[in-house]
């Protein structure tokens, strides 16, 4: 059976690419510290020696639209073009071309339905920055085949937080049951407190530092009970109007396992949102 080589959860900050590649007067003062943290985080994936990456993110109204909106969707294609015109325009992100892993996509799609998740699927999916940002940070060569999974954290009505946790748990179980000798990293990105298009956007730090502190504690300690007890679809509006992206962190907590402490935790308080990085090694850190 396949091995889950690592479970990795992080924020996806679309400004990282430009900040890390800028120089001289254009280079923001926080860039060097940010790059150092990302390079240390990248090493946690490299050490796991993955063959395939299952990538969990959320389409930001690019290909998925309100006339036909899936709650959870898996890409099943031999390859994926990535990044969109408005992401080049606003963030300076490059166009990318990513290999896919159609066999694992097909396995997760079929077995997922049989395990209680009727995932929508796409045979022609253009990927956006929720998945390309973690590739840029964790695997900038983008040389490994991916299986993209999109969640709706964006367009109400959304699934309940517990469904995100259950999907993460199911993805983990299905990868572990995949008849293959491949090493699979499960990587997902979301947000801590975040406001976009509202009065609290782009402040000196994230809109709700207290939520961020609690969230990092829940994730790093695997405290799903507290997260599920304190987070609801309604409550997530309070820390910031884009904070439903935290449900993708909850999905990754489901993939990592209840009560399982992260083997690596780091964070960075940026000017309008907190960055956070977590890695679990299901085989144990000794194997790393």
């Amino acid at each position: 059976m396949a091995t889950v080589a690592a479970v990795i959860a992080s924020t996806h900050h679309p400004f990282y690419y430009r900040a890390s590649t800028s120089a001289g007067a254009d280079r923001p003062p926080f860039a060097d510290e940010w790059v150092a943290k990302i390079e240390a985080f990248r090493e946690t994936l490299t050490r796991a020696r993955p063959d395939v990456l299952v990538m969990v993110g959320s389409d930001h109204f690019h290909q998925l639209w309100l006339d036909n909106m899936p709650q959870f969707l898996i890409g099943k294609a031999p390859c994926y073009d990535a990044n969109w015109y408005n992401e080049e325009r606003e963030f300076g992100l490059p166009r990318m071309f990513l290999p896919g892993h159609e066999e694992l996509s097909g396995y997760l799609l079929r077995e997922g339905m049989d395990a209680g998740f009727d995932l929508a699927f796409s045979n022609e999916l253009r990927i956006d920055h929720s998945i390309t940002c973690p590739l840029i940070t964790l695997r900038p060569g983008a040389d490994l085949p991916i299986v993209p999974i999109y969640t709706n954290i964006f367009a109400p009505p959304m699934p309940q937080p517990r469904r995100f946790v259950e999907l993460g748990r199911t993805i983990r179980e299905l990868v572990e049951s995949w008849p293959s000798d491949q090493r699979v990293a499960i990587i997902g990105t979301g947000h801590l407190s975040l406001e976009l298009g509202g009065p609290r956007q782009f402040g000196p730090h994230g809109p709700d530092p207290e939520f961020d502190r609690k969230a990092v504690e829940w994730i790093s300690s695997g405290d799903l009970d507290s997260a599920l007890a304190q987070v609801s679809l309604d409550s997530l509006w309070q820390p910031g109007n884009a904070t439903h992206g935290f449900m993708d962190f909850m999905l990754m907590m489901g993939a990592a396992g209840a009560g399982v402490k992260a083997d690596y935790t780091d964070s960075l308080d940026l000017f309008h949102t907190m960055e956070a990085y977590f890695t679990w090694y299901p085989e144990g850190t000794a194997a790393r």
């Binding site: 930001h60 109204f61 408005n86 606003e90 964006f154 367009a155 976009l196 298009g197 509202g198 956007q201 109007n241 884009a242």
Partner: peptide
């Protein structure tokens, strides 16, 4: 939608 409005107006 807050994200659509913000992105376009930027």
């Amino acid at each position: 939608h807050n994200f659509l409005t913000l992105t376009l107006f930027i």
